[in-house]
Design a protein around this nucleic acid. Sequence first.
DNA 1: TTCTAATTGCAAATGGTTTGCATTGCTTGT
DNA 2: ACAAGCAATGCAAACCATTTGCAATTAGAA
Lengths: 133, 133
Amino acid sequence: MLMSHYIDIMKKAGVKFTRPRKLVLDALQAAKQPLSIKEIHKRVRNKADLASVYRTVNLFQDLGIVREVQFGEGYQRYELIGEGQHHHYVLCIECGKLEDIDICLLDRVEKMTNFKILSHSMEFQGLCHSCAG
Amino acid sequence: MLMSHYIDIMKKAGVKFTRPRKLVLDALQAAKQPLSIKEIHKRVRNKADLASVYRTVNLFQDLGIVREVQFGEGYQRYELIGEGQHHHYVLCIECGKLEDIDICLLDRVEKMTNFKILSHSMEFQGLCHSCAG
DNA sequence: TTCTAATTGCAAATGGTTTGCATTGCTTGT
DNA sequence: ACAAGCAATGCAAACCATTTGCAATTAGAA
C-alpha cells in the first residue's frame, strides 16, 4: 500500500500527518508481520515516545488503517490492513515462526448468526513442523 | 460435567481440592458463559481472594479444565472445557449478548499448515440483529 | 489426630496501557 | 512571512489487570 493512501485517509478524517505517525506506518510496512507496541517502539526508538506509539496505533485502529491481532501473549499485536482483505495466523510457540492461513469465516458467520460483524480475531498457536519433531 | 470429574483431574495432578477451587468451579459451571476474572471474583466475593482466583484459573488452564476466550476487551475470559469440544462466540458490543457459533477449524488448519495446533482463539464482535436496527 | 507441604490472603510489585498538562509545531488567515 | 489557534507530542504520573513474596492457614496422608 502506498503512503499516499494513508495520508489520504488521515486528511479525510481531519487529523494531521505527523512525524510519529509516519514512523509507525513505516515500521509496520517494513515488518510485514503483526508487531507489538514494544516492537514498534523499538523500531522507532528516540524518534517517537512510547505514549505516542500507543496513541497513534489507537488512532490507526479507529481509522481502519490497522487491525489488532490476538495471540494471548498478554499484549496486543497490530498489522496494516491491506487492500480490504485481512490475514489470520498460526504462531509457533517454540521458534516464533508466523504463518498465514488463507481462511476467513466472516461471511459465513454473519449468515449463521444474523449479527453484523464488526471485527473478529482468529489465531492459532502450536508447533511448526520442525519444532514438533 | 460432574464435580467428581474435576476432583479426579486434580487428584491425578497431585494438587489439593480446596475451597477457593471449588468456588471457582461452581461459578464457572453456573455461568455457562465465559467469565472474566472480575466476574468470577464477584460471584465468589468474600469467600476467595482475587489473587487466589487468578492462581486457580491459571492452574485450571494448565490442567486443561478451563480455556481462555479472547474478546480483546483488555482482559481475558475463561470457560470450562466440556467433554472435549469447545465453543466459539459472537459478542454483541452494544447489548453484550453472547451467541455460540458452531464452527471449528482446528483440523482444517492443522492440515493446511502442517502445524501441531495446541490452542487457538476465534471470536467475533459486532451488532446483534436487534442492536443493528 | 498429628504433621507437613501445599495453598491462601494480604499487600506490594509488575507490566501494559492511558491520561494530564505544559510545550511544540502544523496550518490557515492576514 | 507572521501570528493565532488548535492538534499532537513528550514526559511523568496514574491506571488496571495480573503476578509475586511471605506469613498464616489448611488439606489430606500417615
